[in-house]
Design a protein around this nucleic acid. Structure first.
Lengths: 155, 155
DNA sequence: AAAGATTTTTGCGAATTTCGTAAAAAACAA
DNA sequence: TTGTTTTTTACGAAATTCGCAAAAATCTTT
């Protein structure tokens, strides 16, 4: 996989604002042909640089309860716990971390009942979890996949 | 804003797999007309139910260092700190939480140098932050905006 | 630096998709 | 039931995407 060049980053920056911008539109904006934009996007997708997705508003989907849960795992079982948890649809993020917690996960629920069921039934069943430190989200300020920064795109 | 019905959820489920699926394509799959899919998607966008975005792979963008940082804030300054931090492009997530930390943020960096600069220069400048508990991401297992679950879509 | 090989970009016409809009159908309310 | 509102469908026009071959640019190897 070749390193991303300036045009690639410009394309990503445009698409992270609107994932459905037309190739012709992007081409116009960047002063290139539609074919160039199309072939670059095809290459970026093949190289796994990005995916086209949607960003739903959890609240509007009825997911009123979000939590970040720090987990302590039994030595040697961190990996299997992480893979197990990744399968749950309510879990949106799973990572292994240095620091207080071996794993940190983020999950969405319709209500508190669903959260407590998740902690008491799902997590407790999961062989290898020693402790779970639940933080309830009270307010969300930012949540974004816009990783491409202006400074990265500037020539 | 009216409650989402079964068709809306089906559309969202399809788009969360591929944000660029054609309306005609979705229409075909769901046995509806292109116009119906189009008007529903237009309505969902207007109601702020979702946005078309892309999901870049941070590694492929050269963002090799990710961190979750738990913050303790001075009473009364939590909100202004959160809003301040949301402006930083390297910060992808900011939330207020119950539990050990008042705020939890997630941020991406090109390297450790950039992270330490962020903590020492950005965070320390930020009036109202009493303590920062940095957890370094060692491995990412899951990171997704796919909030619509099969069970939500099933009739 | 030239020649050759490879990659990228461009430029088409054809196929497909999206758009605008009006009529039909369905859902809802009185 | 009847009238009202909302949603779906239908369809031609406009725009976009696709497939592909030629041109241009870039990279290699003498």
């Amino acid at each position: 996989m070749k390193k991303l060049d300036h045009v690639d980053k410009q394309i990503l920056q445009i698409l992270q604002e609107d994932g459905r911008r037309a190739y012709t539109d992007i081409a116009h904006q960047l002063g290139l042909s539609e074919g160039t934009i199309r072939s670059r996007i095809t290459r970026l997708l093949q190289d796994g640089v990005f995916q086209f997705v949607i960003h739903p508003d959890p609240e509007k989907l009825g997911l009123h309860v979000q939590a970040i849960i720090g987990l302590t795992t039994k030595l040697g079982l961190q990996n299997s716990v992480a893979e197990e948890l990744s399968k749950f649809p309510e879990v949106r993020f799973v990572g292994a971390f240095s620091g207080k917690h071996d794993l940190i996960i983020q999950a969405c629920f319709h209500n508190n009942e669903e959260l407590i069921t998740f902690v008491n039934e799902r997590l407790s069943q999961c062989e290898g979890i020693l402790a779970a430190d639940v933080s309830l989200e009270l307010k969300q300020y930012k949540d974004s996949f816009s990783f491409v920064r202006d400074e990265d795109v500037a020539i």
